[in-house]
Simulated assay, not measured.
Amino acid sequence: MREVRTLPVVAAGAVETPFGIHGYDEVVTRDTTWGEHSHAFHELLWNGRGASTAVVGARVWTITPSLGLWMPAGTLHSGSAVAGTWFRAGFFGFDRTPPSVPDVPVTVEITPLLRLLLERLGEPGLSDASRATTEAMVLDAIEPSPRELLVQAPTSAFLRPVAEALRADPGDRRTLADWAAELGVSARTVTRAFNAETGTSFARWVAAVRAQHAVALLALGWDVEAVAEEVGYGSASAFGAAFRRTTGLTPGTFRSS
C-alpha cells in the first residue's frame, strides 16, 4: 500500500531556521508520495540509493545518487519514491544560497566532494569553526549540472492521451504518424503542439520519458537488456545510444549494485 504524506505550504523565509545547513535522510519502507508543499528554507534533494521524482507544475525531475535537485524556498512541489529508496536532503537556511544557482529549481551534480562535505556536516561533535568552514565549502561546491533527467509534461486535453499512454507505458512504440492518425490530425499538428507545450520534439520527449523510467528500473537492479526492452528499444546498444543522447550519461551510471 502506498503511503501518502501531507506537508504544509510555507512561504520562503516565513519561519526562522535555527540552522545553516541541516541534513536529513530516510529509507522509505513503502512506496511513498509527498503531496504538494513548500518550505521556508531551501532544499538540496538527492539519494543515497535508488531513484525518486520531484514535480513542480508540469515539470518532472528524476533524482538519483549522482543527480540532485536544488529546490528554492517557497517552491510548491510534490514527490514520490519507491520502497527501499534512501532519500537524502540538505536543508539550507533562507540566507544560505549557493552563489551559482538561480532562484528556480535546478539539477545539481552530486560530486564525490559535495557528498563528503554534506556527510561531514552530520558528524557528531563538529566544532562551530569546522561547521562554518564546511558549510562555506558546500555552498561553493554546489553547481548547476548541464545534465538532467527532466520531462516537461504537456497539459492540453489534445495531447493528454499521448502523454498518459507514454507515461504509463514508456515501451509504447507508436510513432508520431500513429498518434496523429489516432487523434485525427496531421503529424505536423502534433509536432507543433509538442514544441509549443514541452519546448521539444515528440521524439525527444519520448526519449526523455523513457530515460526517466529506465533510471528507476536500473536503480532497482534491472539488467540493461531488460530495461532496454521494457522502455521500447530493440537492443541494449540502441537503448544505450538514445540514453546517452538524452542524458549525457551511460545507463551504467545508474545501475544498482
Rank of each mutant, 00 (worst) to 15 (best):
T85M: 03
S130T: 13
A141T: 09
G74Y: 07
G125L: 07
A129R: 15
I142C: 03
G84F: 06
P161L: 11
A51H: 02
E43C: 04
T107K: 03
A216N: 01
F254Y: 15
A83P: 05
E3T: 15
G199V: 09
A141M: 01
H77C: 10
A129E: 15
V209R: 13
M1T: 10
G234K: 09
T175Q: 05
T85K: 09
G84K: 04
G57A: 05
D223E: 15
W86F: 10
P112Q: 06
A208E: 11
L117E: 12
L139M: 12
R147H: 07
G184Y: 11
F87C: 00
L114M: 05
V108D: 04
F158Q: 06
L166V: 14
L45Q: 06
A136T: 03
R131M: 01
G171R: 06
A163D: 05
A203T: 14
R88L: 04
R30N: 09
S130H: 09
E148P: 00
L69G: 11
A242L: 06
T155I: 00
L249N: 11
A11K: 13
L44Q: 08
E229R: 15
V138T: 07
A242D: 01
N195I: 06
P112S: 07
A180K: 04
L45T: 04
H39A: 05
A157K: 05
L121S: 01
S237I: 07
L113E: 15
L7D: 09
A228D: 07
V15G: 00
E43M: 03
S257L: 11
L113K: 11
T6F: 08
F202C: 07
T200R: 09
R245F: 01
R59C: 04
T17N: 08
Y24L: 12
L121M: 13
D172T: 08
E43G: 01
A153Y: 00
A180I: 08
V28W: 08
N47I: 05
D178Y: 01
E135P: 01
A12E: 07
A226N: 12
A211H: 03
D103Y: 03
A226F: 07
V82H: 14
V104W: 00
A241V: 14
P18Y: 02
M71N: 11
G125Y: 03
F92N: 02
V104Y: 10
L114G: 06
R2F: 08
A181R: 15
V55M: 09
F91Q: 13
S38L: 08
G48E: 13
S52I: 00
A14R: 12
A216P: 01
H77Q: 10
G84I: 09
D223C: 00
S130Q: 13
S52F: 05
L7G: 02
R2Q: 11
V15P: 03
L113Y: 10
E225K: 14
A168C: 02
A242P: 08
T134H: 03
A180H: 12
E230L: 02
G234S: 15
R5S: 01
P105T: 10
G57C: 10
D169N: 15
T111K: 04
F19W: 14
R115F: 14
R59G: 00
L220P: 00
V108G: 00
A132H: 11
F254H: 13
V215N: 02
L67G: 05
A177M: 12
V138F: 04
A177C: 01
